[in-house]
């Protein structure tokens, strides 16, 4: 199962349905909801944290949290 932690720089994904209780409400409010897009912008020098564009919000989160967000990776060739 792919998660945000598996994205490579510049790759995008669409958030999958997830069990409600795993993610903090804060993240949901920023738009981390099923169907929304996540793009990985940059990984910090020591591989952690991860800087993402979460449906328009630019935030950095730690790898441990990123591993909880499941998504379908959009392959380059099918991207818009």
């Amino acid at each position: 199962m792919a998660t945000v932690a598996d994205l490579t720089q510049g790759q995008k994904g669409i958030i999958k349905d997830f069990a409600e209780h795993v993610l903090p409400i804060k993240l949901l409010e920023l738009g981390c909801l099923p169907g929304n897009r996540i793009e990985l912008i940059q990984v910090a020098p020591l591989n952690d944290p991860i800087y993402i564009n979460l449906s328009g919000s630019h935030i950095a989160i730690r790898r441990s949290l990123a591993e909880l967000i499941e998504l379908d990776i959009i392959e380059e060739n099918q991207a818009l």
């Binding site: 903090p24 804060k26 993240l27 920023l30 944290p49 800087y51 919000s57 630019h58 935030i59 950095a60 989160i61 730690r62 441990s64 949290l65």
Partner: peptide, 10 residues
Amino acid sequence: RSLFMVEMPT
């Protein structure tokens, strides 16, 4: 439990 989140403003 740690939820670490930083907004990266423009």
